[in-house]
Simulated assay, not measured.
Amino acid sequence: MTAWIILPVGLSAFSITGIWIVYAMAVMNHHVCPVENWSYNVTCAEETAKPGFPKTCCTIQDIPLISKCGSYPPESCLFSLIGNVGAFMVVMVCLLRYAQVIEHGHHCWVNTGGLISGCANAVGLVMVGNFQVDHAKSLHYVGAGVAFPAGLLFVCLQCVLTYRVAVTALDSWMAHVRVSLAVGSLVSLVLSGIFFIHESFVLQHAAAICEWVFTIVILVFYGTFTYEFGTVTLETMLAGLQRHHRHGMGVIIGGGAGGGAVGGASKGLKSPGGSSTSTHLNCTPESIAML
């Protein structure tokens, strides 16, 4: 087991906890209405709610979309922090996952697409977190338009990769779990988009709920990489950074006694969720001499 297992679960725990704190702050500061509120008015008189209590009169401007919750200070400061730190952690998860799949001999366009979509998701998160919807609407919507579809594409591609690298029954079970999460994220994102374009207060509120569901499901999906990251080592990271170099060396080794083919076979049979790291290539001088 390695310390890298903390990264995906930390991303999920930090982000989910953070956005709910932002929501609670926005509700208490009368910047949005509670998510359980379904009653909205066209206009409202002067706010009479007591400080520290939710609003009693809500308009369409008070619908608790995630972006609306992080529009005004002080919660906007925390919202930006969550977006920036979360984006950095997303990039780290994507890079490690990309390298890990290569390490298991499954480099393909799906793996590359997963890396690109994950990094695009991170870029969108930075834009969403730093350009609040009520102050920089165009840039905020561009960020959301990149982050949401890219996040959905990432989880779908990772479902495919999980099936491809699965060795044990537990690996296949994890693939099934991820497919369930991917389906949930797809349904919630589509419903959120459908509801959001309507002017009905009820449908707008339903869009906000679907947006929250989508975000939480995606973050839970990122957390499932804890299952594989127990085997991440320095060799895993080098596999992604030096893919072309390693491929060239593999051709040279393959022309010898065939030791490279044996090493590749043993790598492919290793369970990606196993806790043992003993199957990494032995690069000692003695082994090179034998090859």
Rank of each mutant, 00 (worst) to 15 (best):
G86Y: 05
C77T: 13
A169R: 05
N111S: 06
Q158F: 02
C156E: 04
A99S: 15
G129W: 11
V133Q: 11
Q61I: 03
L161W: 10
F88N: 13
L170T: 12
Y163S: 13
S180M: 13
C156S: 04
V133L: 03
C94W: 01
L157S: 02
G151Q: 10
R178V: 06
A122N: 10
L152S: 11
G114H: 04
A166M: 01
P149A: 08
T59N: 07
G105D: 00
S67A: 11
C119G: 01
L170E: 14
A122V: 08
S138K: 09
V155F: 05
M127H: 06
G118I: 03
V123W: 11
V93F: 10
I82P: 09
N121K: 03
P74H: 03
M92A: 15
Y141G: 02
V183T: 13
S71G: 04
I63G: 11
Y141D: 15
F131C: 07
D62L: 05
D171G: 12
L96T: 13
V167Q: 13
C94D: 14
C108H: 05
R164T: 00
L139H: 05
L65S: 07
V183Q: 05
L157F: 07
V133R: 04
N111D: 02
I66S: 12
Q132L: 09
T168P: 10
L95K: 03
N130M: 04
P54A: 08
H106S: 02
V90E: 04
V101T: 06
C94N: 13
L125F: 10
G118H: 07
K137H: 10
A99H: 06
H135W: 05
L95D: 04
P74L: 06
V123L: 15
L170F: 03
M127D: 04
L152I: 08
W173Y: 10
F79Q: 15
G129M: 03
M92S: 13
C156I: 08
L153M: 11
T59P: 10
G86H: 12
D134M: 03
L161F: 08
S172P: 02
F79Y: 14
N130I: 09
V167E: 11
Q132K: 10
V101S: 03
I82M: 14
D134I: 00
C77Y: 14
V179R: 04
K137Y: 00
F79N: 14
V155C: 07
R97S: 05
Y141R: 11
L65F: 15
F79C: 15
G105R: 12
N121S: 14
H140C: 11
S67V: 07
D134V: 00
L181I: 13
F131G: 01
S76N: 09
T56E: 12
G151D: 04
V155L: 06
R97K: 09
C159W: 02
R164I: 00
L78P: 15
A182H: 01
L139I: 06
D62K: 09
L96N: 03
L181K: 12
A147N: 15
N111T: 09
E103N: 15
N84T: 14
C77W: 11
V142K: 08
I66T: 14
P64G: 05
G114I: 02
Y163R: 15
V128P: 04
N121A: 12
V126E: 11
L170H: 04
V93Y: 07
K55H: 04
Q132F: 02
P73Q: 08
M92H: 09
W173M: 07
A122D: 11
W109E: 00
G86N: 13
L96Q: 01
S80D: 14
Y72C: 01
K68E: 15
A169S: 12
F131P: 07
